[in-house]
């Protein structure tokens, strides 16, 4: 499964630090955060799809899927913007004839958005492990609710 920048929505406070950090690193923000009214702030960046649709209409082969990840070659890019129309998430932006999409900040050890996130809501992981994390956390919560001994312990602490 591909690696991507994911967000734990229950932690995100919508401070837009990720947007600013990305803008400083890449000149254009490749992550965009908006608040879904009444629910939560949600950042959106490239999902690094395993079957990327953005590569389908690319005429010059600038965007391609290689070695289990999406590669982008700015030299070959014609700037036609067809990939942007193909992306189901609207996660890519065309600026100055070049596609701006998340490439994990290749010069940094971890993407700057992940490094800067004050609540550690953003994380860079494989989709599989991410699913496991959430499941594990929910299982822990369930255990706490269902297991009387843990519940008793909690009451005792009070």
């Amino acid at each position: 499964m591909p690696t991507a920048v994911y967000c734990d929505l229950s932690r995100c406070i919508g401070c837009r630090a990720c947007e600013l950090a990305c803008q400083r690193e890449n000149k254009t923000s490749r992550i965009s955060l908006e608040v879904v009214e009444g629910l939560a702030p949600v950042p959106v960046s490239c999902r690094q799809c395993e079957t990327p649709l953005c590569t389908a209409p690319c005429p010059g082969g600038a965007l391609r899927y290689e070695n289990g990840r999406l590669e982008y070659d700015a030299e070959k890019c014609t700037g036609c913007g067809l990939c942007i129309l193909a992306c189901p998430f609207g996660a890519a932006v065309l600026k100055g004839g070049v596609i701006e999409r998340c490439d994990f900040c290749p010069e940094k050890e971890i993407p700057v958005c992940v490094a800067t996130c004050p609540t550690a809501a953003l994380f860079c992981a494989e989709a599989e492990s991410f699913g496991k994390n959430i499941r594990h956390r929910n299982v822990e919560k369930m255990k706490k609710i269902l297991d009387p001994s843990i519940a008793a312990g909690r009451e005792g602490r009070r």
Partner: peptide, 28 residues
């Protein structure tokens, strides 16, 4: 279906979907 939406609205639709999953996990 997303081909009929502009990139901004595609992001919006994805956001709404993601935010709704948060509600589901909050039920626990």
């Amino acid at each position: 279906f997303w081909m009929e939406l502009c990139p901004g609205c595609r992001r919006g639709t994805f956001r709404e979907k993601e935010a709704k999953t948060l509600l589901m996990t909050r039920k626990f």
